[in-house]
Amino acid sequence: MNQAAVVAGEAGWELPSRNRVGMVCFIVAESAMFVIFVVAYLFYLGKSPYGPTPEQALSLPVANTICLLSSSGTIAWAVRALRRGRLATFAVAWGATAALGALFLAGTGREWARLVHHERLTPATNLFGTTYYSLVGLHAFHVTVGLVLLTTVLMLTLFGKLHRRYTEHVEVLALYWHFVDCVWIVVFSVVYVIGR
């Protein structure tokens, strides 16, 4: 909402774009929801009566984090390209974003598989399992939703259906993706740094 209403008589009557305002509102609501899951995680940290504990079970997901954070860069690159009308560059950068997102999900999948099979950690195991899977899972769900949307736009681009006039829609989608990234920074710090 940085471009708040400019009032300059009737001619210069400008209002913020509805898509951007809508997305910002949506992000506020999503954040409120994540806060509760983060609070639950922190509240139950170290309260499980029996293991496995985060120290035993978790390792730093470095590769994953690099993937997701760099995807924020690629998506910004994509948006800039679209604004300038360079559709080919857009397609490459956008595709890269989707690929990085997919890699992230795959990484999460591998981590979960390891936790379930080797550490015997499920949501029902203990409080750590309960809060870990729900927080990381909620984030992964958001990545998945983002990925579906990214892929849809990628398809449209490849079939030549994407025009410059959709820049704003793409920008709003990018906003969502940045949000998902920011949430990961919080989840990463809480679960893997503070919590371990």
Partner: peptide
Amino acid sequence: VGVPPLAAAQLMLLADRFLGAHFFDTQAG
């Protein structure tokens, strides 16, 4: 900012009831 916390808590309660999670399970801490 007010309604999503309830939604979050309800998701947790559903997890307790269907996945055997322990958010509000006083027997498991």
